[in-house]
Amino acid sequence: MDGRTLRGAETRKAVLARAVDIASVEGLEGLSIGRLATELGVSKSGVFAHFGSKEELQLHTVKQASRIFYDEVIAPTLSTAPGVDRVYELMSGWLEYSKSRVFPGGCFFAAVSAEFGAKPGRVRDAIAELDRTWLKVITDAIGQAGLKADPEQLAFELNAHVHAANAASLLHGDDSAYKRADHAVRAALGR
Rank of each mutant, 00 (worst) to 15 (best):
residue 179 K to L: 09
residue 135 L to N: 12
residue 117 G to N: 12
residue 54 K to H: 10
residue 78 L to W: 01
residue 12 R to L: 04
residue 7 R to F: 04
residue 89 E to Y: 07
residue 60 H to V: 00
residue 22 I to C: 02
residue 108 F to M: 05
residue 186 R to Y: 05
residue 149 A to P: 01
residue 14 A to E: 12
residue 90 L to G: 01
residue 157 E to S: 04
residue 139 T to M: 03
residue 107 C to D: 14
residue 176 S to V: 00
residue 144 Q to M: 05
residue 112 V to T: 13
residue 48 F to S: 06
residue 57 L to P: 00
residue 72 E to P: 00
residue 64 Q to C: 05
residue 40 L to A: 04
residue 54 K to I: 00
residue 165 A to T: 03
residue 111 A to M: 15
residue 104 P to T: 12
residue 46 G to Q: 08
residue 97 Y to N: 13
residue 156 F to S: 09
residue 171 L to F: 07
residue 147 L to S: 06
residue 146 G to L: 05
residue 84 V to S: 04
residue 7 R to C: 01
residue 37 A to N: 03
residue 62 V to Q: 04
residue 2 D to I: 11
residue 56 E to M: 00
residue 59 L to Q: 05
residue 30 G to P: 02
residue 110 A to E: 08
residue 6 L to I: 10
residue 31 L to V: 00
residue 178 Y to G: 08
residue 118 A to M: 13
residue 40 L to M: 03
residue 117 G to Y: 14
residue 103 F to Y: 15
residue 9 A to Y: 08
residue 98 S to C: 11
residue 39 E to G: 01
residue 95 L to Y: 13
residue 148 K to I: 05
residue 174 D to G: 11
residue 89 E to D: 12
residue 159 N to I: 05
residue 34 G to D: 07
residue 165 A to E: 06
residue 144 Q to L: 06
residue 72 E to T: 07
residue 181 A to Q: 14
residue 100 S to D: 12
residue 9 A to G: 10
residue 46 G to P: 02
residue 16 L to M: 06
residue 23 A to D: 08
residue 67 R to G: 09
residue 9 A to L: 12
residue 16 L to S: 10
residue 134 W to M: 05
residue 87 V to P: 11
residue 88 Y to R: 15
residue 42 V to R: 15
residue 20 V to E: 09
residue 56 E to G: 03
residue 176 S to Y: 08
residue 7 R to A: 13
residue 144 Q to C: 00
residue 145 A to C: 08
residue 132 R to C: 05
residue 138 I to R: 01
residue 18 R to I: 04
residue 13 K to P: 00
residue 134 W to K: 14
residue 124 R to G: 00
residue 117 G to F: 15
residue 136 K to T: 14
residue 161 H to M: 09
residue 184 A to V: 03
residue 113 S to R: 15
residue 107 C to F: 13
residue 185 V to F: 11
residue 79 S to A: 09
residue 23 A to Y: 10
residue 40 L to I: 02
residue 71 D to N: 14
residue 81 A to Y: 06
residue 112 V to R: 09
residue 83 G to N: 12
residue 152 E to G: 09
residue 81 A to T: 11
residue 151 P to A: 06
residue 83 G to W: 12
residue 146 G to T: 10
residue 152 E to A: 10
residue 49 A to V: 00
residue 135 L to G: 08
residue 93 G to I: 04
residue 38 T to F: 02
residue 118 A to V: 11
residue 141 A to F: 14
residue 167 A to S: 10
residue 179 K to A: 15
residue 60 H to C: 07
residue 143 G to I: 01
residue 151 P to V: 03
residue 79 S to E: 11
residue 99 K to E: 13
residue 80 T to R: 11
residue 33 I to Q: 02
residue 28 L to S: 04
residue 161 H to S: 10
residue 142 I to F: 00
residue 186 R to S: 13
residue 104 P to I: 01
residue 184 A to R: 15
residue 124 R to Y: 06
residue 129 E to P: 07
residue 175 D to I: 06
residue 94 W to Q: 12
residue 44 K to R: 15
residue 101 R to M: 02
residue 114 A to M: 08
residue 63 K to H: 07
residue 97 Y to R: 12
residue 80 T to C: 06
residue 132 R to D: 07
residue 171 L to H: 10
residue 58 Q to M: 02
residue 162 V to E: 02
residue 25 V to A: 09
residue 67 R to Y: 08
residue 119 K to S: 07
residue 178 Y to L: 05
residue 103 F to K: 13
residue 76 P to K: 12
residue 8 G to A: 12
